[in-house]
Design a protein around this nucleic acid. Sequence first.
RNA 1: GCGGGUGUGGUGAAAUUGGUAGACACGCUAGACUUAGGAUCUAGUGCUUCACGGCUUGGGGGUUCGAGUCCCUCCACCCGCACCA
Length: 814
Amino acid sequence: MTIKQKLENIKYNPLEIEPKWQKYWSENNTFSVEVDKSKPKYYILDMFPYPSGAGLHVGHPEGYTATDIVSRYKRMQGFNVLHPMGWDAFGLPAEQYALKTGTHPAVTTRKNISNFKRQIQSLGFSYDWNREVATCDPDYYHWTQWIFSKLYEKGLAYVDEIPVNWCPELGTVLANEEVIDGKSERGGFDVIRKPMRQWVLKITDYAESLLDGLDDLDWPDSVKEMQRNWIGKSQGAVVKFRVAKNENLADSSLDFEVFTTRPDTLFGATYCVLAPEHQLINKIAKDNQDVQNYVNAAINKSDRQRQEEAKLKTGIFTGAYAINPVNNKEIPIYVADYVLITYGSGAIMAVPAHDQRDWEFAKKYDIEITEVVSGGKIEEEAYTGNGKLVNSDFLNDLEVNTAKEKIISWLVENQLGTEKINYKLRDWLFSRQRYWGEPFPIVNTKDGQKLLDESELPVVLPEIEKYQPTTDGQPPLARATDWLEYTDKETGETYLRETNTMPQWAGSCWYYLRYIDPKNNKEAWDKEKENYWMPVDLYIGGVEHAVLHLLYSRFWHHVLHDLGLVSCREPFKKLVNQGMILGEDNQKMSKSRGNVINPDDIVYKQGADTLRLYEMFMGPLEQVKPWNTKSVGGVHRFLNRSWNLVIDDKGELKTIKDEDIKVKKALHRTIKKVTEELEQLKFNTAIAALMTFCNEANEHGGLSIDSAKTFTLLLSPFAPHLGEELWEKLGNKETLAYVAWPKWEDDLVKLDKITIAVQINGKLKNTIEADAEIEKDALLALAKADEKISSLIEGKQIIKEIVVPKRLVNIVCK
RNA sequence: GCGGGUGUGGUGAAAUUGGUAGACACGCUAGACUUAGGAUCUAGUGCUUCACGGCUUGGGGGUUCGAGUCCCUCCACCCGCACCA
């Protein structure tokens, strides 16, 4: 052995000890778990990654380190911890790559998974790898298809010809949530509206349930609020309007419904507006070329265009009039694209005096504005506040809320309307015209669809040669000609299989359930195991999933709960969003800015423990924070000092017999601090406490072997490789993963001498040392006896004396 | 426009929830030591002043013996939604 090699064994050498312990954990199955009813369970979940070709970025280890620390801590506290990892492996990039190169997405995905796994394992996370799942694996999507069957049987999945967000560049439709500012979320390509045959899931049936469930969740308020807004419940009424007869319009039976949250303002409705897609237009203005032109122009606009032109408030009079049911006044019917066909009934009653949008439109087209709620200046802007009703016949003098109640009962009595709740939430567009996704367990018959029997699952994704859509615009699966034809076993009839596939969200909707029983080939999960492990106790991931994954998952889980297939209503009890890590230039990390930090580089140079510790030390987990390479060196030095605190430069233990009592006391304060901070996921201050202890121990001559052991245990969730190595050097043969978490003794946490602040008139003048348990009077006397203080109060009149035990003395005088 | 959040040294941040503002780090300054390594050690470091002292948590006001923390008000920035009637 050369001197250099020898030195490396002696000094803190993460590059050597980290692979050593990773191997140990893997060979000993240290972190594999089973149901054990003698122990309390704790389920800690990470949002599993999409294994992209770019590999891990520093954002991944942030959340993963946090959950790993909690997992290790909980294990040491005697919890049976389920902490799994897997792959969200269906997805667009692998398919895009296949389109370009012809490489099968499965090949690309497998390669990326193995790279991701290598990187994740190099960070020493304590996952139970026996539970690894990949959503693109037939053994997995078998059960995704099975859950779809359950939804279908329950009437929650249907086919509809609906206008969808079509992205020509990606060759697929997108869900509303996947469209940002009229562009695709992935790639930023243009999205247009186009009617197409699509699978849709009736998430709207669960709007109320999803809203209700939010209240008791331990989630960030911002996420709960985003979901509430997305569901967008509003209470109001539908009102039926008849269309007035005139010379062009003989049909007297025409009518339409509007939705309003302000039925109290019905007397102020001076016109109505139909969305350009509204079917009534063709009945009242079929031959009006101007109207038809307007409608066509509006329909052909992309969503982006419509958004950009939103302020313009364009519209056109149809020539027809509606009859306001409360006063039989004839009011003009307009078509305008500020009214959306997708919300309510696609038609509104416009009350320009009390709705800003209607106000702007009325001003532009010179329509009457009638005030019906007093209190505003309607010549200047719409008044949406409270007040007394005016110009409203039987509603006059009522407040808005009472007027609402009264008008609704009037509408009901006269069969002109009802109370109604509307949601912004739309049904979930569930099909994609792609190859790399779960096939539907569905065949198309002459008169609809037929669900395949459970025994025919999984419907395995067939091999195809090309991944493009067919020339006649069918999804790529239409190219799998052998697969496409399906012969019904009972009837002998031949049907065509569904060629759409499911969206990427399908697999991630329920992966946390599969982890519970990942190898079960009889059912999706065992009921008893589910009952033991669920719900997820702690779920950490990025805020970008606030309304997508987290709403879809909850939806499926609620359905599964209603079917009696899971034991709890809400899957994720506590949710934490880790904040994004920015580049050193305070900008979002991106290749084009050249500010990307690769975790591999840190692991190879300073070690995984350093990376883990640094990411936790940067600041609060939830906060957005910039990377700082210099600071990485700071935590690396701390790990070095920790090593040197226990190991001397010959590689031998340097623990001492007679440890300073100060060190022991500092240690117990540290146990308390670290434990309390871990409970609150305040990793940055927990690490600061460990640093403080390390500094104090160095100052006061070092550690006894018992203290060294305790310190090692405290450090181990954060820096597990260093922890295990020191633990071994301290004479232990087995992993520290299940050694009991240290407890502090209250007596040792107490300080005997305390520094007390002495203020005069609220300003700090001096500090004094006092016994921790000193009486109030004695403390005051001590403060007054202080040389500096006594000289300052001499000859002054003392008005008030405040003594706060263990904190301060404040003398008020003049 | 609506909703959520954040403003503390040169930088990342901390503050027992109304009680010594700036813990712990980074950076910087000076020094020590070295077979030069992302070394290590020692001292200093909010601003201001020669000093005694004074000032300081985005600005202004208030409550209190005492406010980063509570109340009012204004300002700046970040995130989400956005013609949802």
